[in-house]
Nucleic acid binder design. Structure first.
Lengths: 200, 200
DNA sequence: ACCTGAACACCGTTCAAGT
DNA sequence: ACCTGAACACCGTTCAAGT
């Protein structure tokens, strides 16, 4: 057992988040528990409550980090293309790819823990908003005749669509096999929507 | 406490499912527990395990019933229109409306309980497939130049899109207010996709 | 035969007590 | 000051024992 000032508050926090990430990544959110995180970092359960408000708080922090990783990957992969249309489609593909590689962490973001509709803190809302901004920016060069409101709505519709494919595929409700089919479906959704959207 | 043959196996089963539905509907899936269901129907926990394999089995049964209610409502509401396009759009609206009225039951269908990717039983897969069929049937009159494979894929893309809007709206990640905005977004997604899809 | 209720191995969360 | 570890009120699941 670790004692006294073996680690600073910040160090414990970091260790706990890393341990939680690994547990979720391997066993899903149902495999996560305060006791498991604590024992993974060599501390007692009580210690976690000195660093986090509760387990939901810890989960929210992990989710924030997952969103960070996802965002970074989307930005990076997008940069591979110059063609605006390809750049936008790449966002969708990266999203699917991320969810496919680390389904458990990705799922946890959209899992509802608290009974009451808890308000998400501002820092978390911003991480989500950042994702929409990425899609909006990608849409802009393709939508010269549309207002910024229309673009904002289109970004939400598109991201929702890609997200829906993702979640149905992961929970096995789409009845299609392989990541490729999922990517095909994403491609179909995005390109048809775009054709409709830009032909106005 | 109920004793002996106060109720048949079937009656206990029905009582348990009804009780579980009410608990989930009111307090969400996190509020559901075997003990609560048992006490709500006046039996002990052990009794539930004579009627269901385990809690996941009970949840799957409840989810099946939710899918039945949703399907019935979609069929019914769709019948209000004759115009093929209106009929199809109505499917999306009914889906959103259902999720808005009973978010907790609806959410539970897409919640991942078991750690391992459990195979859904055939009877459940069929209930999901039935939903796709509804969308495919709605699409057919609008897609005279498309193959049945293309229609099948379009149905999946469309339903995924509507579903994605639904789940992001319910988990508060869309950052828009009111059901109306969600219905607007659904309308935008479906009509733009359809315009793209039918213009091929 | 049908159901109980206690037991087992887990939870999240708190907080007096130890070092 | 920092962390423990026991306690509380819950879980899902099982199964010998009662009626």
């Amino acid at each position: 057992m670790a004692r006294r000032s073996d680690h600073s508050r910040e160090e414990i926090r970091e260790m706990a988040l890393a341990a939680a990430e690994e547990i979720v990544s391997e066993h899903g959110h149902t495999g996560l528990s305060a006791r498991k995180v604590a024992s993974a970092i060599g501390y007692t359960v009580g210690t976690l409550y000195l660093v986090f408000d509760n387990l939901d708080d810890l989960i929210l922090q992990v989710n924030g980090r997952t969103l960070d990783r996802l965002h970074a990957q989307m930005v990076k992969e997008q940069a591979r293309y110059r063609d605006p249309r390809k750049r936008l489609l790449q966002l969708g593909h990266t999203y699917i790819h991320f969810a496919d590689k680390d389904p458990h962490c990705w799922e946890m973001i959209f899992e509802r823990r608290s009974p009451q509709a808890q308000k998400m803190p501002e820092w978390f809302r911003e991480k989500v908003a950042r994702m929409f901004s990425l899609v909006e920016s990608g849409l802009e060069p393709l939508a010269e005749h549309q207002s910024s409101q229309e673009i904002a709505q289109a970004a939400r519709a598109l991201w929702s669509g890609v997200h829906g494919i993702c979640i149905l595929a992961i929970t096995g409700k789409l009845d299609i096999a392989g990541v490729e089919s999922v990517q095909d479906l994403t491609q179909s959704l995005m390109s048809n929507y775009l054709r409709g959207f830009t032909s106005t």
